[in-house]
């Protein structure tokens, strides 16, 4: 499973890229997409919504089941990957790239430090 070193991870398998603190990028991990299998539908939140860490913010569906995606950090949603609503395949094919889901303006930049780093996350899924 691909777990890029520069990302942070939640226990519910979302990743956060804090490279730009003004708008951290969020998606789901390679492990999560493999567990879900073929993603056929994605329901993303509205831009402008304020979310708290742990809040359900999106629904991701395979043929077999619907699952929630949780906010790994608190803040305001400033952008969503609209292309995924039309064609969600990148979530499976490129979960850390074209499969990104939302960008969040962090309410508290320190919150990212509370997430798992890549090494710790790798241990939890192995």
């Amino acid at each position: 499973m691909n777990v890029p070193d520069h990302l942070y991870f939640s226990e519910s398998h979302e990743w956060v890229d804090p490279a730009l603190p003004e708008s951290a990028t969020v998606g789901i991990s390679d492990h999560a997409q493999a567990e879900l299998t073929d993603v056929v539908y994605l329901e993303l939140p509205e831009v402008g919504r304020s979310v708290s860490k742990g809040e359900a913010i999106a629904v991701i569906e395979s043929v077999k089941a619907a699952n929630d995606i949780y906010a790994p950090v608190s803040g305001e949603i400033v952008e969503v990957n609209e292309a995924l609503a039309e064609a969600p395949e990148p979530v499976n094919e490129d979960p850390y790239g074209e499969g990104w889901m939302i960008k969040v303006r962090l309410a508290d930049a320190d919150e990212v430090e509370g997430l798992m780093n890549a090494a710790t996350y790798r241990d939890t899924i192995s």
């Binding site: 299998t37 073929d38 056929v40 395979s62 043929v63 077999k64």
Partner: peptide, 9 residues
């Protein structure tokens, strides 16, 4: 077994 390579395939 629910699926092997994926339900759609």
């Amino acid at each position: 077994p629910i699926q092997y390579c994926g339900i759609v395939a």
